[in-house]
Design a binder for these strands. Structure first.
Lengths: 210, 210
DNA sequence: ATTGACATACCAACCGGTATGTATGTTTAT
DNA sequence: ATAAACATACATACCGGTTGGTATGTCAAT
């Protein structure tokens, strides 16, 4: 075996090339939407050519699908799903996640990458719709699990419908993201965070006296 | 003045032509998004030619702007703003409006026309962003006014922040619309309606005993 | 007769996709 | 061990259909 088998910057590195295409594609799609973005702009940003793109992906649509499955899925995984699954105090963790939302105008104007693609593409191409739907479903399911676990440990009222509340949290969160994007207003996001946190705290059991 | 000045189907009817372009444009944009829709498809649906289109509008963007200002604005006006402004029982009217949401899968899969355009175009072209933002703002303002009036007449707790609650109602409503669109699920919309109505009812004052 | 309100025909550029060439690994037969 | 044979991973150049937009002609109303 030679000294450096794979760590040195090989000119041939399919994994790296694919990753660069995904990242560049994500950024361009985030800027201009999927239908509005230009493949050549993606290629320029990724520093590869069209041959490389069409070696790794069958079509522009296929690249979009991969962006959803790899990049967007990882974002929600890192920010929401993994912390919730690993948490011993799910309700507190959920609140911490929501409070961790970036509320500057810049981020607000960008919107939620998942929702951006979902709203633009759901009616246009079924592959996008199915994948965004799957991501939303997993997201809601994971929040619902967290709320159910919170109930089991007594930090959430037993009579609340965990699944309905999970759906509500995700919907309201995305709704605030949507409004804030159009208004380019971090303040709207801040208000949304406060509203959601306040709502979640209202679902805690009454402190028992005596 | 001649017998029939304008009521008979004149071959030359600029108002009607413009309206047909707006309606056809709205439908195509609702189907495929703004960037994805085809001008020729709009022309075919409207039954006019490209000359007519570019006589009434300077560009595709200008048509999109007019769709927002005329068609989309009228939809929210008819469904939300006018009923709220004319109501003597604003909280009940607000609830009735929300409960009037069509919750079949078909409507759910379409999403909210305003939000569709807002999410797709806000970062792409400032004219769209400004117009969707104006519509969202008017919407929220009108709900806030209704809630304030509800407070004045004692049907809403005095300590609630009417503006924050208005923002919340619109955001949550749009959020449910977004999720329901991706999931193609009228059931999600139904759940959202119930959740929102329940929330609004929780803001009513406690019934006074004695 | 002049202006508004269209229709027809056409253009030019963009852009997704392809055809083809080539350099770089990987396997296989000897 | 080594070279042939093959597969993978790109690069380059180009195509052609789509599509927003325009130039020009025509008809109707005042």
């Amino acid at each position: 075996m030679s000294i450096a088998t794979s760590e040195v910057t090989n000119r041939r590195d399919p994994g790296r090339t694919r990753q660069r295409l995904l990242m560049a594609g994500f950024e361009e799609v985030y800027r201009s939407g999927f239908q509005g973005c230009d493949l050549n702009a993606i290629l320029g940003k990724a520093g590869v050519t069209k041959g490389a793109l069409y070696h790794h992906f069958d079509s522009k649509d296929a690249l979009g699908h991969a962006i959803l499955e790899d990049v967007v899925a990882k974002i929600t995984d890192d920010k929401w799903l993994t912390p919730l699954r690993e948490s011993d105090t799910p309700l507190d963790t959920l609140i911490t996640i929501i409070e961790g939302t970036f509320t500057d105008d810049e981020h607000a104007a960008g919107g939620c990458p998942l929702n951006n693609l979902a709203q633009e593409m759901s009616r246009v191409e079924e592959g996008f719709r199915a994948r965004t739907a799957a991501l939303f479903t997993t997201w809601i399911d994971t929040v619902a699990d967290a709320l159910t676990r919170a109930q089991a440990q007594g930090s959430l009222r037993p009579e609340v419908d965990a699944r309905a509340q999970a759906q509500f949290v995700v919907a309201a969160y995305e709704g605030y993201m949507s409004i804030a994007k159009s208004l380019q207003s971090g303040a709207v996001l801040e208000a949304g965070v406060r509203q959601l946190v306040s709502h979640l705290n209202s679902l805690r059991p009454e402190p028992q006296n005596g």
